[in-house]
Structures are given as C-alpha cells and as structure tokens.
Design a binder for these strands. Structure first.
Lengths: 120, 120
DNA sequence: CAGTATCCCGGATGATACTG
DNA sequence: CAGTATCATCCGGGATACTG
C-alpha cells in the first residue's frame, strides 16, 4: 500500500526553483521566516506580523513551514498555553536569500511607486 | 480624479519581502525569469518550459512580469508573428537571487524526498 | 506563431464564532 | 493563549476552441 502525501510541490516541473518558491511563497511565509531569523516567537507575535490575517491562515502557514522542515514548534505544557516557533537549521539556511529578497523588494517598491496618479 | 490600478501587491504589509515574492512568485515566473537570464526567448520556447500550461496563463504571467518592469516584449512586424522576450536591467538584478533560490531548492528537494513510502 | 475568448473548478483565503 | 470549526468567497489556473 502506498501513502501518498499531497505536497504543494508535487507538480515540480523539474525545476528546483519552483520548489523553493513553493516552500517560501505562501502568503505570510516570507514574513514569518524573515522575522524568525532573529529568534523564537510566540503565536501571538507572529499574528501581529500578519496584520488582519485570521488565525486559521496563520496556523496553516506555520504548519506547512513545520512540515517542510523550516520551522520548529515547541509546546509548553503550561496554562495558559505557550507555544514557541523557531527556525530549524534548514530554515536558517535561507538567511541570505531572505535578506536578499527583502533588499531587492525594498528597491523595487521604491522604483515602482504605487499608483494612484492624479489625472487632470 | 484618481486612477487606481489594481496591483497584486496592493496589500503590502509593510514588508518589502512580501512585495518581492509577489513579483516573482507567480506559477511560472521564476522559471521564466531564470531561463531568460541566458538571453531572449520567443513565446513558444517559454511555452515549452511551462509544460502543460495553457497559453492563457503563460501570457498572463509574461504580461505581469512586463508590467512589473522585469521583462521586455519586442514584437516584430513580420508574418508569421515573432515576439521576443528578454530581461530588463531590473530583471537582471534578480540574477543572484534566482540562482540562490535554484540552488537552495535543489538541496531542499534532495533532503525532502517525495513520498510515497511503501508501508508494510 | 502568438496569442484571444469562454467557461469553469478547486484550493487558497476571509469572516466569525467557539474552546481546552 | 493558541488554536478549531464552519461557512462563504475569490481568483489563480485549467480546458478547450478560435484567429490575425
């Protein structure tokens, strides 16, 4: 019998670049990974980063990052609950890429001012 | 009066990293950009890279890349039609990032073998 | 060759409410 | 605090056919 887990990158088109983007490209994944570079964070802190996102989505993104081996989830058996998220070694291996993306995005945003443009 | 163009990164959460991922994160954008690093390509060549994608999607991705200033589209007034796509300077500025992503993706895929796993 | 034009679906995301 | 549960929605993307 086969257990075939549905992976988001099942459809790898032979291109590892696609795989990479699938792993870090989720809605808030970049932001989470980037901020986790600085240390562990709790669920609430991450929530605050993802302004306006519902807990559901946040959990989903974090679970996927966990499944993909980029993030650790440590649950403390206390009440009220406490859960800490941190990067795995593999997660930290994204350090350079995440910073590069951030810097590139910075420049790009500068060079591509968001319209509106006032029209006479 | 204001003209407000709907941008895919309208919802920038203050994080330039998100912006970057939104720009290069489309289904085939990474692949297209990566291969365009090596030179200009025609529509058909790009289509072949995106195995199984419908022309509609391909056009859409290319148009977005064009709008975002990463890709040039040069139309030759000949018949049969000939259109060449190439990277702008801004597109080329992604060189390092694209290669880094590709390499990282390579490693990651190696370390995360796709199931299925045979179960006794 | 390099696209358009339609129709359509499913997964990704949102909103709201509830709980161990 | 850190989530689940449920319902609703949106739109990225697929399939197919047609054209200058």
């Amino acid at each position: 019998m086969l257990t075939k887990k549905k992976k988001r990158w099942d459809d790898i088109p032979g291109c590892s670049l696609e795989a990479a983007l699938n792993v870090i490209g989720g809605k808030w994944k970049g932001v989470f990974l980037f901020h986790l570079l600085d240390g562990t964070m709790r669920f609430n802190e991450l929530s605050r980063l993802a302004q306006g996102a519902s807990p559901r989505l946040i959990v989903k993104q974090l679970r996927e990052l966990e499944e993909d081996g980029l993030v650790n989830r440590k649950v403390y058996a206390v009440v009220p609950p406490k859960v800490e998220y941190s990067l795995t070694e593999e997660g930290h291996s994204l350090h350079n890429i995440l910073h590069a993306l951030s810097e590139w995005g910075d420049l790009w945003v500068d060079n591509h001012p968001v319209e509106p443009v006032t029209k006479p």
